[in-house]
Design a protein around this nucleic acid. Structure first.
Length: 428
DNA sequence: TCTGGGGTCCTAGGACCC
DNA sequence: TCTGGGGTCCTAGGACCC
């Protein structure tokens, strides 16, 4: 049996944690660049605020109902997420942190009669220890646990907990669930399923596995089996090392000139490389992309993405910045306004899998550069993580990046209550 | 006028090997 | 005139998730 624990309106709940005056008031959280709404409290949803809605479309609602608005504060949400996960570790032998606000728990050792009390205990402990509300769904497969969790969220009479062990009750829920709400069914699949007369989760559960396998893929075959209570997805407590690092941002305002784009890219690469080094990884390829603004208008016709091999694989920000800048020079075209840029690091590997070059790269002088480069990166990282000050490559520009035209908008940012000394709340 | 960001998995097709 | 079979690796594109 799996339990899926999912936080309710997680980002909004985090913002309220240190602002008790916002209890009961509508709260929304914006995407990076304050562009659209990515989370809303129950009160905000009741007003008609939808996730994904561009902010400007919700302006009247927000003003009319005194909705509290926050820019994304991932330092805060990440930290609260860790507290939730740590609490769950005290309640189950194995926990898979599936996303920032949800986790699968192995509860297969429990007797059926113990599942409901356990789920209630999970809710109560997260509420007491962390302070964010959660719902719990329990079922024999992950897909069904997802469904049980949805039901727990949707029907208040459940008390936030649904245990789906009885097949009759399961089929009843499946028949009430539109196909689009099944985990793994997005916009495209919904259309294809409906064209086949598959409109509810129950329709899909009753579909012929062979037909699904033939017309779709093994992913959808698993879906059918999981809906019938046959587990195909296991608990993954030790996720495999990641395969790519992406850092991309929309600019606060469109940028036409090359120099500010160079600064932005230098900043983006530095951040991507920092998270690469945090995991002890080396990148074998760098990809740069550049999008013209505004969205929805025709894009430039020449390529917007280019990549280059990094040989040998490296964790040295300077080398990757140099490559990325060369790619940018080929992507940039005068006369266009750019709204977004990004960098992607792929071909990631650990230190012991970095392949030396057979010829030029092996010259002792180059090896020496490599060693000094590692030392330099380690020093920069330790300074930047110390909280005392920051150092960066000059290519990013001399002023703090939050003052640049390309910096993202974050007009409604809350303090980093739990992860920055100067932002700690003061109790009087 | 104003619309995010970071990921994963799967398949098909091309190029190649023996 | 007649020309096999089994396999890997890589990339692009599609679809999905939160």
């Amino acid at each position: 049996m799996f339990a899926l624990v999912d936080c309710n309106s997680f980002y909004a709940a985090c913002e309220r944690l240190f602002r008790p005056d916002l209890q009961g008031r509508p709260v929304v959280v914006l995407s990076n660049n304050d562009g659209c709404i990515v989370a809303g409290s129950a009160e905000a949803k009741a007003l008609g605020v939808k996730t994904g809605m561009p902010l400007f479309q919700a302006h009247d609602l927000i003003r009319g109902h005194k909705v509290a608005v926050f820019s994304s504060n991932y330092a805060l949400y990440g930290d609260i997420s860790q507290r939730v996960m740590a609490t769950l570790e005290t309640l189950a032998p194995r926990v898979e942190a599936y996303s920032i606000d949800e986790a699968f728990l192995d509860v297969s050792l429990m007797k059926t009669a113990e599942l409901q009390p356990l789920a209630l205990q999970i809710r109560a402990r997260i509420d007491r220890w962390v302070g964010v509300p959660v719902c719990v769904g329990v079922a024999p497969t992950k897909v069904l646990a997802k469904l049980a969790n949805h039901a727990a969220k949707r029907y208040p009479a459940t008390g936030g907990v649904v245990v789906l062990s009885d097949p009759l009750r399961r089929d009843k829920l499946l028949s009430l669930t539109p196909i689009s709400q099944v985990w793994g069914v997005g916009r495209r699949l919904r259309g294809r399923f409906e064209a086949l007369g598959i409109n509810t989760a129950l329709d899909l559960a009753r579909a012929d596995v062979g037909m699904i396998r033939q017309r779709f893929s093994v992913v959808q075959e698993r879906l059918v089996r999981e809906l019938n209570g046959e587990p195909c997805l296991s608990l993954d407590t030790q996720p495999s090392p990641r395969q790519q690092v992406i850092y991309s941002r929309s600019f606060g305002e469109p940028v036409a000139a090359l120099p500010p784009l160079r600064q932005a890219l230098s900043d983006f690469v530095s951040r991507a490389m920092e998270s690469l080094r945090k995991e002890g990884l080396y990148a074998g390829r760098v990809t740069v992309y550049l999008r013209t603004a505004p969205m929805g208008k025709p894009q430039q016709l020449f390529p917007d993405t280019l990549s280059a091999v990094l040989s040998p694989a490296t964790a040295d920000t300077r080398l990757v910045v140099r490559q990325a800048q060369a790619l940018l020079a080929q992507l940039w075209w005068p006369g266009y306004r750019y709204g977004k840029a990004g960098v992607i690091l792929t071909d990631l590997r650990g230190r012991d899998q970095v392949q030396c070059g057979l010829f030029a790269e092996q010259k002792p002088a180059e090896q020496e550069t490599g060693r000094r480069g590692e030392a330099l990166m380690a020093v920069m990282d330790s300074i930047n993580q110390s909280g005392v000050g920051k150092v960066w490559l000059a290519g990013r520009g001399m002023q703090g990046n939050q003052h640049s035209t390309w910096a993202m908008r974050r007009a409604h940012l809350s303090p980093a209550y739990t992860s920055r000394w100067s932002d700690l709340p003061v109790v009087r």
